[in-house]
Each structure stands twice: as structure tokens, then as C-alpha cells.
């Protein structure tokens, strides 16, 4: 990651040099502080809510403000959560849930979506950027139109497809589960694809033809030139794409709920559907444990923001060093 960032920083530094010399680097410090203050103030409520959620996951009650100081903190909620004691039944008894399986399911969906999105949009983006084929423009416009379509609006038709196509598998439970995963991943990935393909096309567009030609002249085949010369230059783009696709898969509720949860009669859960289940009967559920689930659910997003902060910082300092 850091190496990627460095490379991108170098490319950016060079682009900046070409266009505006050192003007770009001479931002006034006062303006930067002002900007930071405004942005900070605007995002304060959000940050506070997240913070309260994370705190609650360690507390014996859901903390909402002044009670921060009164609550007692421990790792109990997290231990209960990982033991699967998430839904209190009667007294001190719990119906147990397989938390590790749930996390694994979530990861499978997220990684699956990532793989499909990255693979497809890298290939399609390259084709749209570099190859001249029939219907190229038409297809590109069509893809943008698809992007404008909300995923929820599509779900009835997609559900019909699901029911119809999974009919032959109904007898075998294992096949049904596998199919539910595959269908969820493909359906969720297709929602991400239009934007990703356009993004990737943009990244490929920025590589001058001459660089690719140069590789051909140096003796590389078209495939090798693509793999060794073109692809490394769009790595930052692929990284960004992968992060967004992973988050989309990890956080998805609607598609996961319809195809994976309902499709397997509630047997296959992800974090999103688990939390949905737990909060459905909010009177009986022990909310601090749900807060732990929620924190875990949000962890990739939080990690992503922390990481890209670091990435950005490194990118800029790397750019200055160069």
C-alpha cells in the first residue's frame, strides 16, 4: 500500500510540476487551519455518534451522553458476543449464534464482491479505454444509465430471476447455500460495476499510448505489456476500487437480506442481517452486545478512514521527498 501511494504521489507531483510549478505546494497555512476547523465542526456529530457506539460496546449500558462517567466498562460484551450469547432468552440463558460463521459469511460476500468488481472492471475499463469496437460508445452510455438506476428498484426483477434460476437446486441444501452466495455476490457486484468500469477507464485513459507501444517495441506481447507496464500504473486505482467494493459487500443489507438470508431461510447470516435480527426485538435484546456487533460491522469503514489518512499523509510527504 505504502509503495503504491508513493508511486502515485510521484506521478501526481510530476503532473503538478508540469501544470503549476510550485504554486500547488504553497498553500497558506491559515487557510488550511480554517478549512480543517470547518470540516471538523461539520463532522463532529457523526464522529460523536460513532464514538458513543464504540464506548457502549464496552459498557454495561448504552451510553448516550452524561452517563459516560457512570457506566462500568469491561470486555464482557465482546466476550459474550464472540461466545455467541447475543440474544437473551429467559433469565441468564442465551440462544447462541455462530458468530465466527457470521463473520466468515460477511467476509465471503465482501471479498467475493471485491474480486468480481476488480476483475471485471479492470478488463472492461481497459477495453473501453484502449480498444475500438462496435457499439463502444453506445455501451458506455448504457453503463452510465445503469448506474443511475437505484439497486432497490431492480430487486424485484432480480429476485424473480433468483427464484426461477435456483429452482433446480432446491433439493440439495449445500448447493442452495453455495448458489445463494454466488448470486448475492454477483448481484451486489453488478451494482458496483458501472461506476467501477468508468473509474477504471479513466485511470487507463491517463496512461499515454506511447508507453504501451514502447513496451511492444521493446519486444513485449500485448498481454505482457498490459500486465507489466499498464497494470502497475493503475494500481492506485485498483486499490481504491477494491476498498469501495469490499465496503459495499461488507455493509450491504438489502441484497444480502433478500438472497442470502431469506434465500436460505435465515440459516446464512452476515453481520448486517444479524444486527437486523437482534434489533428486530429491541425490547428483549441486550443492546451493549449489539453495540459490539455494530462496532465490528463498522470496523472496515473506520480502518479504511484511518488507513487512507496515513496513506494520504505518506503520499504527500513522499511527493515532497521526490
Amino acid at each position: 500500500m505504502a509503495r503504491l501511494a508513493l508511486r502515485r504521489a510521484r506521478a501526481e507531483a510530476r503532473a503538478a510540476e508540469r501544470v503549476m510549478g510550485d504554486v500547488e505546494t504553497l498553500r497558506s497555512a491559515r487557510r488550511a487551519y480554517l478549512l480543517a476547523a470547518v470540516l471538523g465542526a461539520a463532522s463532529l456529530p457523526m464522529v460523536l455518534l460513532y464514538l458513543l457506539l464504540v464506548l457502549s460496546s464496552f459498557a454495561d449500558t448504552i451510553v448516550t451522553g452524561p452517563d459516560i462517567l457512570e457506566a462500568r466498562y469491561s470486555l464482557d460484551n465482546w466476550l459474550m458476543f464472540f461466545r455467541g450469547e447475543v440474544a437473551p432468552a429467559a433469565g441468564r440463558l442465551y440462544t447462541t449464534a455462530d458468530i465466527l460463521a457470521t463473520i466468515a459469511n460477511t467476509a465471503i460476500v465482501a471479498l467475493g464482491v471485491t474480486a468480481v468488481v476488480v476483475f471485471t472492471s479492470v478488463l472492461a475499463g481497459y477495453a473501453f479505454s484502449r480498444m475500438r469496437f462496435r457499439w463502444r460508445r453506445g455501451l458506455m452510455t448504457f453503463i452510465i444509465l445503469l448506474h443511475a438506476f437505484p439497486g432497490v428498484a431492480l430487486i424485484i426483477a432480480v429476485y424473480a430471476m433468483y427464484v426461477w434460476s435456483s429452482m433446480p437446486l432446491a433439493r440439495s441444501e449445500g448447493a442452495m447455500v453455495a448458489y445463494a452466495f454466488a448470486f448475492t455476490v454477483l448481484a451486489r457486484a453488478s451494482l458496483e460495476l458501472p461506476m467501477s468500469i468508468w473509474l477504471m477507464k479513466g485511470f487507463f485513459d491517463r496512461i499515454p499510448w506511447e508507453v504501451e507501444w514502447s513496451a511492444l517495441i521493446d519486444g513485449a506481447s500485448r498481454l505482457r505489456a498490459w500486465w507489466q507496464i499498464v497494470l502497475p500504473q493503475v494500481k492506485p486505482g485498483i486499490a481504491a476500487l477494491a476498498i469501495f467494493a469490499f465496503l459495499a459487500g461488507w455493509e450491504d443489507l438489502i441484497y444480502v437480506h433478500v438472497f442470502l438470508y431469506i434465500g436460505t431461510a435465515g440459516k446464512v447470516k452476515t453481520l448486517a442481517t444479524l444486527i437486523e435480527e437482534l434489533t428486530a426485538n429491541i425490547e428483549t435484546s441486550y443492546l451493549p452486545v449489539v453495540a459490539a456487533a455494530g462496532t465490528l460491522y463498522l470496523l472496515p469503514t473506520i480502518l479504511f478512514f484511518v488507513l487512507t489518512q496515513k496513506l494520504l499523509l505518506e503520499a504527500y510527504s513522499g511527493g515532497l521527498k521526490a
Binding site: 499515454p208 508507453v211 514502447s214
Partner: peptide
Amino acid sequence: GLVFQNYALYPH
């Protein structure tokens, strides 16, 4: 061997 007008070096 071809030297391109814009050099076309491999930036990475």
C-alpha cells in the same frame, strides 16, 4: 529501437 517524441519511459 524507437525513441518517442515524449520519451514514453515506464514511470513505475
